[in-house]
Amino acid sequence: MARTVWNSTVGKKTVMAVSGLIMLLYLVAHMLGNLKIYFGAPEFNEYAHWLRTMGEPLLHYEWALWVVRVVLVVAVVAHAVSAYQLSRRDIKARPSKYVHKKARASYATRTMRWGGIILALFIVWHILDLTTGHVHSGGFEEGKPYQNVVDTFSTWYGNVIYIVAVLAVGLHIRHGFWSAAQTLGVGSRTRDRALKALANVLALLLTIGFLAVPVGVMTGVVS
């Protein structure tokens, strides 16, 4: 069955939809967690520490966090590989263009591939910036995420990279969430408007929620 799924355009798209939804679920939690930065350094840092002790004493230190990390890596890789393979196939299936060109489909629909590439690059930069600190601008200190975040958003490029990525996420979700519903066969004519509305609301909330952090630092509310 796994082979049937992976070898079929419909099946591979299912992999994309499921992995996309897993990432979406994570992003909602991540966005809400980030907003704790507005409650000040002690609370934010304590929250970050809790992410590591989550599940104790049943689990060991950082085990729960690593489970989440592994699930996310699997989701990102599955999503990116199927996106790449399906895109290659799609481009091959339409080798000659029309001479008479027309603007087609919505912006969100047309930017799924480029937006996805931007997101993939951002994920790498983001981890090197705020998880490992390799490309961090200030003196990166583990266990002091509040200060690390403020440092990142005190540089112009930190803000630019982050804001572009967040806008890309918003657009990606706008088309992606509704698409996933169709791929998984849960869309229908009667549900279509509700699903589109839900996709827009999710996209908007994620965009605003994620943007609130750099905006907070830029305006000095978070410092």
């Binding site: 355009t9 509704w178 229908s188």
Partner: peptide
């Protein structure tokens, strides 16, 4: 060798018989 669906919806827009996009769903 047909491609896959990206839910662009162009097919249902041009279909002379009005087959809806939800047909793919």
């Amino acid at each position: 060798g047909f491609g896959g669906c990206t839910l662009a919806g162009e097919c249902a827009t041009v279909c002379p018989k009005g087959i809806p996009l939800t047909s793919i769903t």
